[in-house]
Simulated scan of single mutants.
Amino acid sequence: MTWNIPNALSVLRLVAAPMVAVMFLYFERPYADWFALCLFILASVTDWFDGYLARAWGQETKIGAMIDPIADKAMVVIALMVIVGYSNEHWTPWLVLPATVILFREVFVSGLREFLGDVAGTLKVTKLAKWKTATQMVAITFLFGQGMFEHYLGMSAWGMDQALVDQIMLGEVDDTQGLRWKFEGMFWTGWIGMVLLWAAAVLTGITGVDYFLKARPHLKD
C-alpha cells in the first residue's frame, strides 16, 4: 500500500465509521451525540479532501480507489443504523424506508462490483452519484443535530408536567430553561434532515438503477 496523505485520510475515514457507533456505547447522551456528530463531520470533510489532493498531487492509487467508496458506505450505513436505533417513536417510521433504500442500494452495488471484478473499474462514478453521497452526509448531519436538540429538550423539561410545558410553549409562563428554542432546533433540524434523507434515497435509487443498467452487458453469459 502506498502511504500518502490522500490514502491516509481515506483510512482514517474508514476507521472513524465504526467509532460513530462506539460513541453511544461508552458515553452518555448528549455527549455521545456531540462526539458522533463532530466525528462524522470531520470524516465527511476528508471525503472531499482525499479525492481533491489525490488528483491535485497526482497521487491516485488503486488502493485509494478501493478504500474511498468502502469508507463512504461504511460511514453512511453505520450512521443511519445509529440514528434509526436512537430515534424516538415519532420519527422512526419515517426514517426506516429511506434508510432501507439506501442500505439496499449500497449492498446491491457492492455485490455487483465484487462480481464484475476488474470490469467494475471501467464503470465511472457519475456526478449524480457524488451528489447522492453529499446529500446523504448532509442529511445525516442534520439528523444527528435533531437528536441532540431532542435530548437537551428532554433534559430541560425533566420533572415538569405536560401542562406546564404547554404553558411555556404558548408563552404563558417564562421560558427560563429555553424550551422553545430547543424545540425549534429539534423541529427544524429534524425536518430538514428528513427531507434531505428522502431526497438522498431517491438519488440513491436512481444511481443504483443506472449502475445496474451499465453493468448489464457484463452480466450476460
Score class of each variant (00 low, 15 high):
95 L>W: 00
121 G>P: 02
128 L>C: 10
168 I>E: 10
162 Q>Y: 07
168 I>Y: 14
170 L>W: 13
141 T>V: 14
171 G>L: 15
156 S>K: 09
118 D>V: 01
97 L>I: 07
92 T>Q: 15
113 R>C: 00
110 S>W: 00
122 T>N: 02
117 G>K: 01
170 L>V: 12
149 F>I: 08
147 G>E: 01
159 G>T: 09
122 T>R: 05
138 V>I: 15
94 W>L: 15
168 I>C: 13
109 V>W: 04
100 T>G: 01
121 G>D: 04
142 F>L: 11
153 L>W: 02
98 P>I: 02
106 E>V: 07
90 H>G: 14
111 G>T: 03
96 V>D: 13
151 H>E: 13
173 V>N: 05
98 P>N: 00
151 H>Y: 10
103 L>H: 00
150 E>P: 10
96 V>E: 11
96 V>I: 07
148 M>R: 12
100 T>A: 04
173 V>D: 02
129 A>L: 06
164 L>H: 06
132 K>R: 05
159 G>Q: 09
126 T>A: 02
128 L>M: 10
115 F>M: 05
118 D>N: 06
142 F>N: 05
173 V>L: 06
144 F>T: 03
117 G>V: 06
158 W>Q: 11
93 P>R: 07
158 W>A: 14
172 E>I: 14
132 K>W: 04
146 Q>H: 13
94 W>V: 12
108 F>K: 04
151 H>K: 09
97 L>C: 09
123 L>C: 01
129 A>E: 02
113 R>D: 04
167 Q>R: 11
142 F>D: 10
132 K>D: 01
89 E>N: 14
96 V>T: 05
106 E>Y: 01
103 L>I: 01
109 V>S: 02
120 A>N: 03
132 K>E: 05
150 E>R: 08
156 S>W: 08
88 N>A: 10
123 L>S: 01
154 G>H: 06
126 T>E: 07
106 E>G: 02
144 F>Q: 09
134 A>L: 14
93 P>D: 07
127 K>L: 10
157 A>T: 05
99 A>I: 09
89 E>D: 15
148 M>I: 11
140 I>G: 08
128 L>Q: 07
145 G>N: 10
116 L>E: 02
119 V>L: 03
134 A>Y: 13
151 H>T: 14
127 K>S: 09
129 A>K: 05
